[in-house]
């Protein structure tokens, strides 16, 4: 890790994120690793607003806002233009939410990484369409309330495993990261920057507004997602080589769930079932990494 990474700032004060916004912390940390030779593509997501309205910007690097489902494609074009201009130094980054990645932007992302475009695609994941008012996405986890999975119709479907989908494209680098683990996040961003071809970073970014949590709990709850094995920290190189970066003590998932308003309706039986699902996923990951618990 570059020594001065922590001192560098590429975000200005005055952004318009909510108090405790994990997506904002994610950007701040990520950019510390990337540096000024970065062009950022921002498809529609919370960050379309957080970056600030015209004529202001919270970012100190060139940013191009683009349509919701075009993160992969727009970055492909920026990269092609830089290549034609002989600029191999500048990194191209797509910074998208879970809706723009798991759902509407999925085709564009898959197309871009199948072509092994030389860019980093970052999905900051707050597990629903938060910018439009907490609607479910295919990243919304089993058990969650959202405004489109209301009351007794809470989401009874699994969260799409986007990391494994990207791994299946056999791209050079796929990793998960979390705003509560800044050293790990910055190291992974720097690693992604150093590799040629398509890189995918999946950053877990808590959302106090949508998760119905106090803003000061944002980082703590993000950390608990790793500690409970709900969101393991790992990286996969060339679609084959798995490395688990953090082996937690395996707190019970109910500790994580009971702190969040979005899971308030779940019964002990529901939580037991979710615990089984999380254990099963963790077991699968260990197997892929050739490790034991």
């Amino acid at each position: 890790m570059q020594i001065d990474a922590y001192d560098r700032e590429y975000m200005c004060s005055g952004h318009v994120g909510c108090a405790g916004c994990g997506a904002t912390i994610a950007m701040r940390l990520f950019m510390k690793a990337m540096g000024e030779k970065t062009i950022m593509v921002l498809p529609a997501c919370c960050w379309s607003v957080i970056a600030g309205p015209y004529p202001q910007s919270a970012m100190k690097i060139p940013v191009i806002h683009t349509a919701f489902e075009t993160g992969g494609a727009t970055a492909s074009g920026v990269r092609a233009a830089l290549d034609m201009k002989g600029d191999t130094e500048t990194s191209v980054v797509t910074w998208a939410g879970d809706g723009g990645t798991f759902d509407i932007g999925f085709q564009s992302l898959s197309g871009a990484v199948e072509r092994n475009e030389d860019f980093i695609y970052v999905c900051y994941d707050n597990e629903a369409y938060m910018n439009t008012g907490i609607q479910r996405s295919s990243s919304t986890p089993y058990g969650a309330w959202t405004t489109t999975t209301p009351g007794q119709d809470w989401k009874r479907l699994r969260k799409k495993n986007i990391v494994e989908v990207l791994v299946a494209h056999r791209i050079p680098y796929v990793a998960t990261a979390n705003i509560a683990f800044p050293e790990d996040l910055i190291r992974k961003a720097q690693k992604a920057k150093s590799i040629k071809g398509s890189k995918f970073l999946h950053i877990f970014a808590s959302c106090p507004t949508g998760w119905r949590i106090p803003s000061e709990m944002s980082v703590k709850i993000a950390r608990m997602a790793v500690q409970t094995n709900i969101f393991p920290l790992y990286e996969v190189e060339d679609g084959i080589h798995y490395t688990i970066n953090h082996k937690p003590k395996e707190y019970l998932v109910r500790e994580y769930f009971k702190l969040q308003g979005r899971f308030r309706h779940l019964t002990d039986k529901d939580l037991d079932q979710i615990q089984t699902m999380v254990d099963e996923d963790w077991g699968l990951l260990l197997k892929k990494a050739g490790e034991r618990s």
């Binding site: 062009i39 075009t70 727009t74 970055a75 074009g77 920026v78 990269r79 092609a80 233009a81």
Partner: peptide
């Protein structure tokens, strides 16, 4: 969308 990126660059 790719041309949006390229032309903007």
């Amino acid at each position: 969308a790719a041309l949006v990126g390229a032309q903007s660059a």
